[in-house]
């Protein structure tokens, strides 16, 4: 059993409006290599919590530690370097439609200044993992929704992230594609990546039982381990 903390939240609160909290007094620990579901109704605070983890938002109160580093004190110029250790997958894929599949997956590596030959190898490997290595010269809009999400996962995993955050990654997909996508998350987790997956799909949780954190009105109301 791994006991090293990957993510720690201490008394985290976030308000978008003064009269209601998006997150309220969250204390949380997620260990390295864990697979955690973040669940709750729409507006419960799942996306906000994920945004705090990759510094798209800053908390109003509390501290967040990633691998022991306090990211609430990060300066703006340090944020890109944190994000290079975190893969993020969204419900709407967020692919660059004017770039090919290869260019989309290669982009996080180019950002890190990797050499072209290394980029080529890693991109091919990542696309092979998601079964789309033969589509690398196509454009995102030429692919189905499920395929686009697999590309987004390949892009998130190509840098070998410590943490994989997914915000409703199967929200727009049918059950068969959902199962394929979940297999990819499981494989990434098996290789040691800590996975935090926000979903309101109870069916998914039942099919792939893992630790479940339930949010209600911005508060963490349940923490159930399977």
């Amino acid at each position: 059993m791994n006991t090293e903390a990957m993510i720690r939240l201490y008394d985290i609160s976030k308000h978008y409006r003064s009269d209601s909290a998006a997150l309220a007094n969250i204390d949380l620990r997620i260990d390295k290599g864990e697979f955690v579901y973040l669940t709750g109704a729409s507006g419960a605070g799942k996306s906000t919590l994920l945004k705090l983890l990759f510094c798209a938002e800053r908390p109003d109160k509390g501290q967040i530690l990633i691998k022991g580093r306090n990211i609430t004190r990060l300066k703006s110029r340090e944020v890109p370097y944190l994000r290079r250790t975190i893969g993020v997958v969204f419900q709407d894929y967020k692919l660059m439609n004017s770039r090919t599949i290869f260019e989309n997956v290669a982009f996080p590596l180019e950002v890190q200044g990797k050499r072209r030959i290394e980029v080529g190898k890693k991109v091919y490997q990542a696309l092979k993992e998601v079964g789309l290595e033969e589509r690398m010269s196509r454009y995102p809009l030429e692919l189905s929704g499920g395929e686009q999400q697999r590309i987004a996962i390949a892009r998130a995993l190509v840098v070998g992230p410590d943490i994989l955050l997914a915000d409703e990654p199967t929200g727009n997909l049918d059950i068969n594609v959902t199962l394929e996508i979940m297999e990819l998350f499981k494989k990434a987790n098996a290789r040691g990546t800590t996975v935090v997956l926000a979903t309101h799909s109870q069916e998914m949780i039942q099919r792939f039982p893992r630790r479940v954190l339930t949010l209600e009105g911005g508060a963490l109301v349940r923490d159930e381990s399977c």
Partner: peptide, 13 residues
């Protein structure tokens, strides 16, 4: 959207 994605994957300003 492209600018947002670039920032998400760790591109510096």
């Amino acid at each position: 959207d492209e600018l947002e994605i670039m920032a998400l994957v760790g591109a510096t300003p």
